[in-house]
Structures are given as C-alpha cells and as structure tokens.
C-alpha cells in the first residue's frame, strides 16, 4: 500500500492539440516545451523508465508551487534540445522555458540567451529523478519571477556515459523521425490519468 502511495499518481496523460502556439503575454508564465515524440509516441518513458506523464506533472507542480503558470507547447521543427528550449523561451510570456526530449534530457532556457547556451542544462537523463524534475520546474519559475535560485544540483555519474550512450543515441535517432520541418509549435492541453 505504502509503495503505491509513494509512486507518482500520474503515469498516463492525454495531450490535446489546441492550435498554433502563441507568444505569451503573461509575465508570470513558464513554457514547458516538449520534443516531437514526447509523451504520446515511442515508449512514453524516459531512458531509464520514468513515465513522461509523471515528468510533466513534476514540471507543472514545481512551477505551480512558486505561483507561476505553466503552459505546454510541442516544438515540431527540431528534436534538438537547445532549439526546443529556445523556441519555448521565445513563446513564453516571462521569457523562461523548460524543455525536455523523450529520452529525458532537459534544460531551462531564456529568451535573450543564445540558443546553444541555456541557463541550466541537465544532460544526463539517467541520473534525473522525479524530484529533480520538480526542482527544475521550481527553478524555472523562480527565474521567471526575477529571483536568482541556486542551480538544481546534479549527480555526475561517470559510468552513465558508457552505460547509456548507445541507447540514448537510438532514442534520439528515433525521435528525429517525428520532426516536421517548417511546422509551427502547437499549444497542448494535458490531462493526467492514473
């Protein structure tokens, strides 16, 4: 019983497209930008098995806890994390976005930075726990409020690279097959299920 309670209540979600994503005007919003296959294609899990739904839920929770609004968009034009994050930041009313790929690598981006230099980068998907995703959402919201939070702590596992590199590449290659060149980002509604 206790195990059940400890596990995240949302392991599934439904993503509904709501048309082309608009540039936000609310200064208190953070855009969650997801990659082309994230959430409803492939395995709907990150590299080391976290449900995509649970990850999104943690992002949202971290942002909401800071009393900032979350808005989810899917970027179609690229599976590259920096590009997804930068597009998200440009759409965000606060100029801040969090972005994630299907394999689970994530970042926090800001509108005025150069695309390849995000505010915080989380390259090692396998070392990211759900609590880290919550923390990433929280930090993004703090940046949106003009605070200067300490960066989300990361565990650096030297074994992660050799162990996961091959499968991570496969994930990414598969994800790029879902890319739609030239297509605009879309607004998504999310609904979580258990």
């Amino acid at each position: 019983m206790s195990e059940q309670l400890a596990s995240p209540p949302a392991v599934e979600m439904t993503l509904t497209e709501r048309g082309p994503a608009k540039t936000g005007t609310a200064p208190d919003e953070v855009v969650i930008a997801i990659s082309p296959a994230f959430g409803d294609q492939m395995k709907r899990k990150t590299l080391h098995g976290l449900a995509h739904a649970a990850v999104i839920r943690e992002f949202c929770a971290g942002i909401e806890e800071e009393q900032v609004k979350a808005r989810i968009v899917r970027v179609w034009r690229s599976a590259d994390l920096a590009a997804i994050g930068f597009d998200g930041a440009k759409l965000s009313g606060s100029g801040i976005s969090v972005a994630i790929q299907s394999r689970g690598t994530a970042l926090i981006h800001q509108r005025d930075l150069v695309p390849l230099a995000p505010m915080e980068l989380f390259p090692q998907a396998p070392s990211l726990a759900l609590s880290t995703f919550r923390h990433i959402g929280k930090n993004a919201a703090k940046y949106a409020k003009g605070d200067s939070p300490s960066p989300v702590p990361q565990v650096n596992d030297p074994m992660a690279r050799p162990k996961w590199q091959a499968i991570a590449s496969i994930y990414h290659i598969r994800e790029t097959q879902f890319v739609r060149q030239g297509e605009k980002a879309v607004e998504l509604d999310v609904e979580f299920h258990t």
Binding site: P27, D28, Q67, V68, K145, G146, D147
Partner: peptide
Amino acid sequence: ESLFHIRHEDGGVQF
C-alpha cells in the same frame, strides 16, 4: 519590479 509584479520586502514576488 515590472508593470506586472512587485517584490515584497521579504523577497517574495507577487504578480
């Protein structure tokens, strides 16, 4: 701090 938010003296932000 902006046309949409204030920062309270305790550091908290209100939109």
